[in-house]
Computed example of a mutant assay.
Amino acid sequence: MFTIDYHSPIGVIEISGTEKAVYSILFSEKKLPENVIDEYTPDVLVTCFKQLEEYFNGKRHDFSFPMEMEGTPFQTKVWNALASIPYAATGSYKDIANNIGNEKAVRAVGSANGRNKLCIVVPCHRIIGANGTLTGYAGGLWRKEWLLSHEQKSKITIPSGQYTVK
């Protein structure tokens, strides 16, 4: 497993993976990056780093590098539903539960959301309360607020009616 650090506007992000796929993108409490790209860094991690940089510069709205989600079948279903929330849009735990065909699993969806190891790319920051308020975020509510605001500022025009999770 290899790890590199990306110094984002909202703190250091650790990117970990193998030569074949990215396994985690997580916020760190490091003040400065410690793991830098070198000649041994796999291309997939370098690609992830560059795509995160484009995202933070407002030039990328989705990601195309290989990634692996490690979790239960239920968690994977939730994470795939999260990934279907469009850039700059939001949804709720209830929306995700309905999306996966298990409308009573709202709490379980929240738990799976909290175990997402591919932050930003699997956009758990786009989940808000059913009443429109910000809900918990493993990276901190201030980061969630920043990410949502960033996406609103740099979004492309999307036809109306395409902002809800179906």
Rank of each mutant, 00 (worst) to 15 (best):
T76G: 12
L45N: 05
G114V: 07
E68V: 15
S111I: 13
E103P: 11
A112L: 09
F74H: 06
A89Q: 13
G91E: 00
A81P: 00
S64V: 13
D95G: 04
K104S: 14
L82M: 07
C48V: 01
Y93M: 10
N98K: 09
F49P: 03
M69N: 09
G58I: 10
I96M: 03
M69W: 08
Y55I: 06
F63M: 08
T90G: 06
T90M: 06
G110C: 14
G101T: 12
N102G: 11
E53K: 02
V78C: 06
Y87L: 13
T72D: 12
V46L: 06
A83G: 08
K50P: 00
R60P: 01
N102W: 05
G58H: 11
K77S: 07
A105I: 04
L82A: 03
D95S: 02
L52D: 01
V46R: 04
M67A: 11
Q51K: 04
K104T: 15
Y55R: 08
F65Q: 03
I100G: 00
L82K: 02
A97C: 08
V109E: 00
N98D: 08
P73A: 00
P73S: 03
F65R: 03
T72G: 11
I96S: 03
I96C: 05
E54N: 10
K104E: 11
A88Y: 10
A112D: 08
Q75L: 10
Y87D: 10
H61D: 13
F63Q: 04
V109F: 00
G101W: 08
P73R: 00
L45C: 08
K104H: 11
A97R: 02
R60V: 08
A97D: 02
T90Y: 07
A88Q: 13
L52W: 00
T47H: 15
Q51L: 06
V106H: 06
A105D: 04
G91K: 01
G110P: 10
V109N: 01
T72V: 10
I100T: 07
A112C: 13
F56I: 06
S92T: 06
N102K: 09
E103G: 15
S84E: 11
A89E: 15
S64I: 14
I85R: 02
F65T: 05
Y93K: 12
E70I: 13
T47C: 10
Q51F: 05
T90V: 11
N102R: 12
N98S: 09
K59N: 08
H61S: 13
A88V: 13
T72A: 08
G91Q: 03
H61V: 13
L82C: 08
I100M: 01
S84W: 06
S64N: 11
S111Y: 11
Q51N: 07
S92K: 07
K59Y: 10
W79R: 05
E54P: 04
K77R: 09
